[in-house]
């Protein structure tokens, strides 16, 4: 339901454009996520993600359904973009360890029923973004990996 807290065991995926994917030195080979993937724009008041458990089926089916939803939304999901996946509880813990008590809530949007918002999320905290990119939200896959 709208406004419900996403449980700690729930998973969030976040779209990451090619410009915020980490590449191996001197190449375009993707090897991870840049901290900037978790930075909010000035106009945003929360960090957007998609709640995986909103979808039914196996883990792989949930991921595929979430990606399809995002592809059909107003977000630009380009061929070389990717997704970062993390557990809500781990994300809360990582933020809390740096003094940020975030609220991760289910906030459906017209083109994404599974939309989740990370609220009270800090702006301009590069070190936290790096912690997320290397820990709580570091699992990644490419758009091209999903049929």
């Amino acid at each position: 339901m709208k406004g419900d807290k996403i449980p700690d065991e729930g998973h969030l995926i976040r779209s990451v454009p090619f410009s915020k994917l980490r590449k191996a030195d001197g190449t375009d080979d993707v090897i991870g996520i840049l901290p900037e993937a978790f930075a909010m724009r000035d106009v945003d008041s929360y960090l957007s993600a998609t709640w995986l458990e909103h979808f039914a089926g196996s883990d792989q089916q949930k991921v595929t359904a979430a990606v399809h939803t995002l592809r059909n939304s107003s977000l630009k999901i380009s061929p070389k973009s990717g997704f970062a996946r993390g557990k809500a509880g781990d994300i809360r813990t990582a933020c809390s360890a740096r003094g940020h008590s975030v609220r991760i809530v289910h906030e459906p949007e017209p083109d994404n029923d599974a939309h989740a918002a990370v609220r009270r999320y800090p702006r301009d905290e590069l070190e936290l973004y790096e912690v997320l990119a290397t820990g709580a939200w570091s699992h990644w896959f490419l758009n091209a990996d999903i049929p």
Partner: peptide, 27 residues
């Protein structure tokens, strides 16, 4: 050596170097 390249939302280049699990990122 040549880094990996990225960009911030507000138009700054990001240089990243990765050696094993040791990472350096410079905006």
């Amino acid at each position: 050596r040549r880094p990996g390249l990225g960009a911030t939302n507000d138009g700054n280049l990001v240089a990243s170097w990765t050696t094993g699990s040791n990472r350096l990122t410079i905006v």
